[in-house]
């Protein structure tokens, strides 16, 4: 599909978004932004997928945001990372050595991190041309099983891997060299902070922001939606310390086979003290195509979602920044 066609497709989705009714009983307030479609990539011609038959289906497992406003899409089915500039135009395809990578991140727009939890069980560091720089075995202190890694978190003090959504392990130092592994409860953030999130067992999600490994009672907030929260999809903060939580709300039928009746993602923005700033909703939720990372938060405060439709991959973003 040509560049114009891709942007046209994204524009059409945007036009449809304007016609959408309010998303649920507590839809976004008028001040909250609508999602802005950024790019659409059709299946099979521009981005790969695996359609399962007695096996799992998968689309691009992850994506990452570059500091120049561009985006990286992990197109593992085609053994590559798609490198796009800030207008969505192709910069390059970065070749991958296997089809089993399931997360991608970057550092400074110059270094690529690709995670293979399930086959090679390594974190591979490459330059943007695809030349390998460092290859780190995941399993070791703090990570007994590579498959239990739940997030790849590059920070200014090194590269961290979250384990079972409980704690994170630093595997590379700020020079991208293997290091003595440090452990931090929750997800490490910049300036010595960490975010912890957990379902509360009553349909809500508790979020805490504290100094890393703080032993005191961390300040927290419990978030509820209009429907019970099934999953905490993503938790992160931007460069200003604003906290973003994405929650999967869902209601299921009471009788077998308990099919879903209603579902959406609730996007919540909080300040450093976890005071609510804004929220919105996304009708795009996880599909039958397996996906590890659906949402990213840019340092600039833009929140991005990589959603799958019947026809392809849709990248959207929400802009809560002050004009």
């Amino acid at each position: 599909m040509s560049k114009q066609a891709r942007h046209l497709a994204a524009g059409l989705v945007g036009a449809l978004l304007c016609l959408l009714p309010a998303l649920g009983p507590a839809a976004a307030s008028p001040a909250d932004p609508l999602p802005e479609p950024w790019l659409f990539l059709p299946w099979d011609t521009e981005v790969g997928r695996v359609r399962g038959d007695e096996s799992d289906s998968e689309g691009p497992k992850s994506f990452a945001l570059k500091p120049d406003g561009g985006v990286l899409i992990l197109d593992q089915a085609n053994l590559r990372v798609i490198d796009l500039d800030d207008r969505g135009d192709l910069v390059r395809h970065v070749p991958l050595p296997a089809a089993t990578f399931d997360d991608v991140e970057q550092l400074g727009g110059e270094t690529l991190l690709v995670l293979d939890r399930l086959a090679a069980r390594t974190l591979l560091v490459m330059d943007m041309q695809g030349s390998p720089l460092v290859d780190v075995a995941l399993e070791g202190r703090g990570i007994p099983r590579a498959g239990s890694v739940t997030a790849l978190l590059p920070r200014s003090d090194g590269v961290w891997l979250e384990v079972a959504h409980r704690y994170s392990v630093k595997v590379l130092d700020h020079d991208l060299e293997p290091c003595t592994r440090q452990i931090v409860l929750g997800r490490p953030m910049e300036r010595g902070f960490a975010l912890r999130g957990a379902k509360d067992g009553r349909g809500g999600v508790t979020v805490q922001r504290a100094m890393r490994n703080d032993r005191g009672a961390a300040p927290g907030i419990t978030l509820y939606g209009d429907d019970p929260i099934r999953r905490l999809v993503w938790l992160d903060e931007d460069a200003l310390g604003r906290v973003y939580a994405v929650l999967h709300e869902a209601v299921f039928a009471d009788t077998s086979p308990f099919r879903v009746r209603r579902e959406a993602y609730r996007l919540v923005v909080m300040d450093q003290t976890l005071g609510l700033l804004a929220q919105s909703e996304s009708p795009w939720v996880l599909t039958t195509y397996d996906q590890r990372v659906e949402v990213r938060v840019g340092a600039d405060g833009l929140l991005w979602q990589m959603a799958f439709t019947d026809d392809g991959v849709l990248l959207l973003r929400w802009d809560w920044r002050t004009p």
Partner: peptide, 25 residues
């Protein structure tokens, strides 16, 4: 389920993976 609502599973995921153990949604 873990704190975020994911589960640890064993699955025959597909040809390139084999039978694996992982946390997934």
């Amino acid at each position: 389920e873990d704190p975020y609502g994911e589960h640890e599973v064993v699955e025959a995921k597909g040809c390139v993976y084999g039978i694996i153990r992982q946390s997934r949604s």
